[in-house]
Design a protein around this nucleic acid. Structure first.
Lengths: 208, 208
DNA sequence: CACTATACGGAACTATCGTTCCGCTTGTCA
DNA sequence: TGACAAGCGGAACGATAGTTCCGTATAGTG
């Protein structure tokens, strides 16, 4: 986005010399916007109006659009971080000695995350299991690949039904998130419910 | 809705005598609207624009609103029929001798229905598992109660985990529908996928 | 055939949201 | 401290969708 490096010019440092450093208020506002977006999107998901984010950040919409070209871009900035952390955690689990426990932890953590944060939920929901080859965002690829490894290892250990693909598992995990989040449940009971749902899913995944 | 019986008056049958019978074109148009709504909503779900329904019925929106007070009312007219038929079928299953087979059939049929018809899917999704006491529509009550019986019988037969409530099961069935319908899957593979998901769910539901 | 209650069509209205535009403000630097 | 690029706010715009309104058309009746 930035047209060139802000410092070191070959010509004299006059006023017409390249772009100045970022102004302090701009940096403050961007931070405030990210914090507000984090709050708003985690509560209301991607359907939250953009004005709500600007309002809560204490800036006008114009300022929001100065920092992020579209609503999508702002949303992605938030949700990418969430997915990255899931991916990192999944990669870590993929190196654990017990493949069954690792897969179960992975599933539990994804579900718990989606149940707690509506933005993550919305992102997973619309992600669906789009053919992963067509997904360009590298953080999604990381999560997908780590999930693949976790599933394969659990299958090789004879713990999980060998006929399941990662698409199947993804659909089931996603379904578990959605079932637990469904419209009218009061949010307070979701964690407990989703725990039980993961239990049932896990039992259903067992080989034999 | 009709204020009174259209025929037999005590006074003379003058022009100012009660409402006439429904005009033929009105009846035709209502039928066309229902047929169009059935098509459109089953393909696109409740988010289909109302104009699309009117267009496909070959009438103006004004006509649509003459017959149905809101979009909701039209949608409900369609979806109520679907839920009624699920409910009737569930009640029938509740009288079958094999409780396990009955519950499995019920689950399979709900999922298959939701995967095939987006209106049913949307309705179940937003229905969620709202406390059933608060649901007034009698056809939903029927489906819920039949589901309860099916679950209880399967639990008493020792087939299904006794700690599951109908809310749990509803959330799981709903989740299965949602997982299988997720955004980007090509619809052609949904039936197969959902069948496998029901298999896993069923395995997970087993007692011990 | 004429008359009128009924029904029809679709333009217009309202509300919501994402996005753009532009006049004003302010941080930064000489 | 003065000049000005960078940044800001928020009104206005455009798109979408549900709903209303009203002038026109017509089915049914005598």
């Amino acid at each position: 986005m930035a047209p060139a490096a802000p410092h070191q010019r070959t010509t004299a440092p006059t006023a017409r010399d390249g772009p100045r450093a970022e102004r302090a208020d701009a940096r403050r506002n961007r931070a405030a916007l990210l914090a507000a977006a984090e709050e708003v999107f985690s509560e209301q998901g991607i359907s939250a109006p953009i004005d709500e984010v600007a309002r809560r950040a204490g800036v006008g919409v114009g300022t929001l659009y100065r920092h992020f070209p579209t609503k999508e871009a702002l949303f992605e900035a938030i949700v990418a971080a969430r997915i990255e952390s899931l991916a990192t955690r999944a990669e870590q689990l993929a190196r654990e000695p017990d493949p069954a426990a690792a897969l179960l932890s992975h599933i539990s953590e994804v579900v718990a995350g989606a149940v707690a944060k509506k933005d993550l939920f919305d992102e997973l929901a619309r992600w669906g299991y789009e053919p992963i080859e067509r997904v360009h965002a590298e953080y999604k690829q990381r999560l997908w690949r780590a999930g693949e490894i976790l599933l394969r290892r659990a299958q090789q250990a004879g713990v999980v039904r060998p006929d399941l693909t990662q698409e199947d598992l993804t659909a089931m995990v996603l379904g578990t998130c959605e079932g637990a989040c469904c419209a009218l449940v009061d949010a307070a009971r979701r964690p407990e419910l989703s725990k039980r749902m993961v239990e049932v899913l896990w039992a259903g995944l067992q080989a034999r």
